[in-house]
Structures are given as structure tokens and as C-alpha cells.
Nucleic acid binder design. Structure first.
Lengths: 216, 216
DNA sequence: ACCTGAACACCGTTCAAGT
DNA sequence: ACCTGAACACCGTTCAAGT
């Protein structure tokens, strides 16, 4: 936190992101963000109209971190790279996904990102209808996967076995299919939930590729 | 709001859902929820340990509204019904999705729901690995689609044409692909973003069906 | 037992005052 | 111009007091 320099909208939003990474979205108060900059809450209002605007900027900040896809590359390659980057970024800043729902107006970074994705598909010869199709399915998968990864009882990764029993209680009776499913997965030493991302994405890209060949 | 009756955890969470539906998650304060019940903030603490627990209950409340799938029916039919119900419910209570990210411990309604979904797949002969595959991909798609629907510049529905120009400003220069894409979509009178849900879901279910035939 | 008023440490925001 | 202290109406929560 490079403190005591001149305030600016960008510095304020960076500070807000740092606060959110450390303490979650609930910790992002005008006073906390100002403190992160060795400043006072009221000083922020000279660079940001109000907290809602700060949060708009914070949501967009996350999309600024995602690599822009390259329309010159083959579409499948760009889509895979973008999805992978988006997953990494949103996984590192999970508060960003929670902001989307209540923030219908996309910021410039999000729009620029969408523009480039549509650019990739357009340059590859996708019709508008098929591009929408591809875009919305891939996007939904990426957003949803990150969300799922944070909340699925078998998604946790390290020590997930013990975690389930602890978290949910002795609940094999209440949730027999989950219990059986978990046991079967744990018996398979090669299974890792994180691998589901690449698998699911490939599944979707295969289907899109087939559709594209059928009706370019 | 059936007011002045005896307080209970269930009545409190129902009231919280009503407040959230009306004013968004930000409106859900202990004082507002109590007022919805013609009561006082402090009275809630006799039925709920604190606000975080109330929010846990609220997140789970949403999953209680989603139709449970029937393991006796063909798996594709149950998955489609469940996804459709989940989309409708989460679309009507969009604040629920925003809560998932910060609430890693699933509630009983969510677990029961997951258990039944895994039950459908298990009864249909899916291996644990393939069931995880199907589950996480479908779930991700549903969550992500609802999220996307609320924030995509071409997703808005009625009056979306004008909305884009208003929302984003005269930005065809900044976002040429979005502008071209939009124009092409609007020229196609048969296009509706809402249709993308069924299309994307079918695409995923087709792919799962193919995988299942290859390695049951 | 269940409910509630007053009180405390917070929060976003306004406004007047400082430089 | 940029920053900030005091003040206002909120917020979650504790505690003592009511029934």
C-alpha cells in the first residue's frame, strides 16, 4: 500500500480491491478504503461520487485483470485462453462475481473484454446468432464454475474428505446419494474437481464447433 | 406480511426474502426485517444467533423454492426440469446468486437438492466421475446464465435496442464488434436472448449424452 | 420465555471549515 | 483544488429491564 501519495480514482479502486481481497466485500467501507490510503473517508468523495460508483469501479477492476483474447488466433485457442484467465482472476477475487448480479451496467473493462471476445468469434466467421450462442454458453460456464467451486460440497480440494463430515455433520443418512458419490470419487485417486473445468469447457467447445460446421 | 403473529426463524427468513425481493440485499437489515414483521430488531436475536446466520438461512431459502428433480424419470427430463426451475427461481430472486460466493457452507435445502440431482444421475447409471462432470457443467451453466442475463449488454429483452445506446453511451466506435453484433441480432426478428437458455442447455445435455454412451 | 428500549461502535454522506 | 473534522441518520449487537 503506497500510502500518502496524491489520491485518485484509480488509487482508490486499487485500494478497495486490496481491502476486498483481504476481508471480503463486507470490509469495503469508505473508512476502510481511506485508511488503506492513509487518508480519511471524506477525502474519497473528491474522486468518486459515492460508494455505489466506487463499487461499480471495483467490479470493473476485476475484468481489467482478465487477459484480452487475440482475434488473430484460432477461435478455439482464444476462447480457451480467455476462459482460463477469467477463471483464475475470478477465483482469486471471488467477491467480483457476487457484485455482478446487482450491477447491471457493465463498465468499460467488461465491455472492452466482451468486444474482443465477439471480435474473435466474428473474425472466425461465426454468425451473430451463433456467436451469441457460443459467448453466452462459455461465459455462463466460467462464471458458474467459479461460483460452484466455492460452494460445492465436493469441490473443496485439499482435505475435502474430512471437511464434508465436519461441515455437514453426520449426514450420510440425510444425503445418501451425496455420501455414496463422495465415497466413489475419493476411491478414485486420479479425480480432482479442478480438472472438471477443462473437461466442461472442452465439452462446450466441441459442441460449438459441431454447430459451426453445421451452419457457419 | 402477516404481522403481529409469534416470531419464528421461518417467519423471519420469509420476511427477509420479501425485503430482499423488494429492495435488494442491501435493504436486508435487522431493523428492516423486524419492521416487516411489525417487530423490533432486537427481537430477532431470540430466533437467530446473528445476521450472518439469517443470511445463511436466506440463501438456503432460495434453494427451497427450486423443484426437486424426480429420480424415477429419465435423467435428461429431470435435468431439464430442474435447470428450468432453478433458472426461474434464481431469476426471480437474483440476490440469491450474489450470496453464494461468500457462503461456502451449503444449507440443508441446497444439500437436499444436490442429493436428488446426484440421485437422478446415479439411478440413470452414471459413474461418479461422469455424474460430477454432468452436475458441475449443468450447474455452472444455470448459475452463470442467470448472472449473465442480468448483466449482458444484449440480454435485456424489451427495449434493449435503445437501452444499449443509453447505457453505454455513443460507443459504437469504442466497441465496434459489440455494435456490429447487436445490429445483426436486431435485424433478425426471430432472435431472443431468453431462447439461449434452452439452446445452451440442450447443447450441454447432448454432449453429456454422447459421453455417457461412450463410457457409461 | 419472549420481547424491547437505551447504548455502543460502526456505517454512508453532508456541510462547513481548513490548506 | 483538495483534504478533513463534526454531525446526522443509519447499521449490528449487547445488556439490562420489562412482561
Amino acid at each position: 500500500m503506497a500510502a500518502r501519495a496524491r489520491l485518485s480514482r484509480d488509487r482508490i479502486i486499487d485500494a478497495a480491491a486490496a481491502v476486498a481481497d483481504r476481508g471480503g466485500l463486507a470490509a469495503v467501507s469508505m473508512r476502510n478504503v481511506a485508511a488503506e490510503l492513509d487518508s480519511e473517508a471524506m477525502s474519497l468523495y473528491h474522486h468518486v461520487p459515492n460508494k455505489e460508483a466506487l463499487l461499480d469501479g471495483l467490479a470493473d477492476w476485476a475484468f481489467l485483470q482478465i487477459d484480452l483474447p487475440d482475434p488473430a488466433k484460432p477461435w478455439r485457442e482464444s476462447m480457451t485462453a480467455r476462459a482460463t484467465s477469467a477463471r483464475a482472476v475470478l477465483g482469486s477475487h471471488p467477491w467480483a462475481l457476487g457484485m455482478l448480479e446487482s450491477r447491471p451496467k457493465p463498465g468499460p473493462a467488461l465491455l472492452r473484454h466482451h468486444d474482443r471476445v465477439l471480435g474473435c468469434l466474428s473474425e472466425a466467421g461465426f454468425s451473430a446468432a451463433l456467436a451469441t450462442h457460443a459467448f453466452s454458453t462459455i461465459d455462463a460456464f466460467v462464471y458458474g464454475f467459479v461460483l460452484t467451486e466455492a460452494s460445492l460440497p465436493f469441490a473443496a480440494g485439499e482435505g475435502a474428505e474430512a471437511a464434508f463430515a465436519d461441515e455437514v455433520g453426520a449426514s450420510a443418512d440425510d444425503y445418501p446419494y451425496i455420501a455414496a458419490h463422495r465415497a466413489e470419487l475419493l476411491a478414485d485417486k486420479t479425480f480432482a474437481f479442478a480438472d472438471e473445468f477443462a473437461a466442461g469447457l472442452d465439452l462446450i467447445l466441441d459442441a460449438i464447433e459441431a454447430q459451426r460446421r453445421a451452419a457457419p
